[in-house]
Design a protein around this nucleic acid. Sequence first.
RNA 1: GGGCGGGUAGUUCAGUUGGUUAGAACGGUUGACUUACAUUCAACAGGUCACAGGUUCGAGUCCUGUCCCGCCCACCA
Length: 762
Amino acid sequence: MGHALNNTIQDIYIRFKKMQGFEALWMPGTDHAGIATQNVVEKKLASEGKNKESLGREGFLKEVWKWREEYGSTIINQLKRLGCSCDWTKTRFTMDKGLSDAVLEVFIRLYKKNLIYRGHYIINWCPRCKTALSDEEAQHRDVNGMLYHIKYPVEGGGHVVVATTRPETMLGDVAVCVNPKDKRYKHLKGKTAVLPILNRKLKIIFDKKVDPKFGTGILKVTPAHDPVDFELGNIHKLEPINMMNADGTINEAGGDFKGMDRLEAREAIIEELKERDLFVKSEPHKHAVGHCYRCHTMVEPRLSKQWFVKMKSLAKPALEAVKKGKIKFYPKRWTKVYINWMENIRDWCISRQIWWGHRIPVYYCRKCVQNDKIQNEEGIIVSRIKPDRCPHCGSTEIEQDPDVLDTWFSSWLWPFSTFGWPEKTEELKYFYPTNVLVTAQEIIFFWVARMIMAGMEFMKDIPFEDVYIHGTVRDDTGTKMSKSLGNIIDPIDVINQFGSDALRFSIISITAQGQDVFLSPEKFKVGRNFANKLWNASRFVMMNLKEESIKKDLCRAPDDPALTLADKWILSRFYEMLGDFTKSLTIYRINDAANRIYEFVWHEFCDWYLEIAKSTITQPHTQVTLYRILEKSLRVLHPIMPFITEDIWQRLPREHDADSIMITNLPRMQKEFISKKVDSEMKLLIDVIQAIRNLRATSHIKHDKQVDVFIKAKKKNIPSILNANITYINKLARVGNLNASTRMKKPPHSAVSIIDNMEIFI
RNA sequence: GGGCGGGUAGUUCAGUUGGUUAGAACGGUUGACUUACAUUCAACAGGUCACAGGUUCGAGUCCUGUCCCGCCCACCA
């Protein structure tokens, strides 16, 4: 449903801009969603009793492509069902040849600029997906964990107590650390602690990174499984010990715990510590733990050799572009979020240990790479194609890096790679930079920020001017909709039940700018009922329309003596609405635009004008006005409800050359129709009619009984306005005789209602 | 720890730069098959705008503080 909201917004703008005469291009496309897709295909294989290892890399990729052909069109089909007016001939996919070439080009350029490097660092590791993740892909959630206090014996007698949330990582401990200023532990200087169970000797080191106030003030140091510990390890020259396999099980470093899952090992270790009387206590401790954004498994910080992009220099121009206002966020508040992130940006881990994606264009010479330790870049060959020989030693034993790139490493090039970059194509010249990016807040870091960086780096220009951030779609309890939680509302189901237009209108009308959307199936009735109303109103107009009587030109209409007050009023209201509608869309207040035309069509056109029109339906002025207002309203509404407006429009008498409402223009603004005087006179009538209806209802007068009404007005012009339009009052309020004047006594046995400037008696 | 969003009718929310009587939808009550529409029409009831101060002729709106709810970011193990 998030996609439905997103795509509806995009389609509204594309249609709106097209109808304003612009050449608006909506290029549809999809990314290859590396980890997610690989997971799905692996699951599918598992259900067939196969696995990717037995198929081999090539065989597996064949399966993924097959899957993609079968199911990959789902998103595109949804777009079509929604009515999205994309240019389908330009559909792109991140694994297309052209886009893949762009990825290679970018990798090589950044590598040559020293902005891509390979390094041994603590990264976020998903034990289920068995791959590294970027910082953004590890989503932190508060977890009610435990802080465990454990005794570590000290050689020569005594012990220290360390505090940890992940006791299982003790299997990788290489030291114990205290703050040098902590007086409690001065005596530990020069001593050695002993790791329980494994009996590994642990150096006791001193570093001010340790907060004496936290826990016991003693930190166990696990350089291979914690970022701070890793730094400590570097500073104090400690050799890290990796105690975990790729799947999160304990490896041979863990002695008897080998083979256990990390969480299983945690329990087992605590048990063992208890038996040895080394367990002090555990206390509840709330802390944020990273979770894989694809499978929600708890990620493990893990020392690993990965490829990174240096971000600082890329971020600089991208930051400037936003600070200088070249790119604007709507709502504005996201600007700060963006700036804050960009100013604190960290290097981007781009290698993934999966098979589905763009394979890293790096080759290693086996001879130069000894013992898996690469010295001084020798043995690393970055190349578009596999080189025959190593340029250093001439060896032919060359193999490609097995990893693929982060999916976002292709997505961030989208605004220009889709137009054929690095070729200087006509399309690229014509359409870049683009105007607007519509997306959700969770995508700002993943995609928006990176697209801006890539645009500035490779195109030397912004990729888009406006970034519209819409809210998150939640269910009616406020929980984010997601497949894994099973609380999604499938847009296709809604379309089948209520129709595309109903879906589009409903979701737009309840989405205030940038606010989250709380959805329940009930809410789609708004749009359905509106479509129904519009349909019936149109049916009524068409039933009564005589084609020859609508040919009249309305251009000189503001002064046309044939037009009645009601005619002038609905025209005035229409153009006022048109102005508001256009303005709201321009400033990305889409729900205002939707609700404005809803209000106009339902409560002004249908409730009042149509009712009034019934009594003069055959007269030319009514015929023309009915037709014009309906036809123009359809065009205004078309960007939001393309299907029903097209259908009705096709049935109406034609006055345009266009074969479809899609290629007509929005009604031209004609301010001369907007009249305060007309509006206020009509409002007077409406107020009177409502007051009379109110009196009738509260006096329990049968609805079909005619009543006589007396009105005492405080202003001289009121009686004449009322008398001039007495037929409206007679019909809409079921009034027999109406007597209005500035002087009047309260008639006997009457009920009274007092409104602005008059008293009404019946 | 830092930041952001929100607290307005029974419910879900609008309320743009301060300006008459704070709006809508849904729900509720009452009445109506009024010749486009019961997926409808008419009418009614419902609010100390979280709380406390302040600025102002005037505050739902601006300022300060407090209390709740939600979200994001962050290497206190």
